[in-house]
Amino acid sequence: MNIFRLLGDLSHLASILILLQKIQSTRSCRGISFKTQALYATVFITRYLDLFYDWVSLYNFVMKIFFIASSCYVLYLMKYKYRPTHDPSIDTFRVEYLLGPCAVLALLFHYRFTLPELLWSFSIFLESVAILPQLFMLQRTGEAETITTHYLAALGAYRALYIPNWIYRWFTEDMVDPIAVTAGIVQTALYLDFFYVYFTKVLQGQKFELPA
């Protein structure tokens, strides 16, 4: 564990708490992509199967349980409790275009040809693009509530912080995980556009609005 990974994980944790806070305080999931949330639940469930047979640490165990439970809880809130506030007509990204290629990539790039390892690879590739339905929705509506942008910023910061973590581990532990690093860099790059608007507008006290 190093400072970058710890801050990254805490940022990830914060992003989920901000998302829950957004839904509970506005009593609405307006502006949140159900598809992205469903993809995250898929990512966590397929990646954390090792909960059942591999012990890493208490920290690791608690975080995995939290990520699985919170992502399922968000799905429940969106699908049942606040269902009327979710508008599927603007959440139109075709997730098949993400799931298919990620499955193919997992078959091509993995560390071992076993089901848990294939699912782990799949989850890494899927996580890297899971935000796309959300960003697509943002692009379509052209604006977002400030709290939603804080959620996305915390999520993006988590990914960005994993990059110095990998550089640090490369030097100190001689550890390189090419699959996670490649997918992680792609994932972080997807946030660049968003971060630009977030830093130049939201953090200056303006509303998140994309240029027409």
Partner: peptide, 10 residues
């Protein structure tokens, strides 16, 4: 080495 690697990241 890949053979011994454990997925300890989240």
């Amino acid at each position: 080495p890949v053979e011994n690697k454990r997925h300890d990241e989240l």
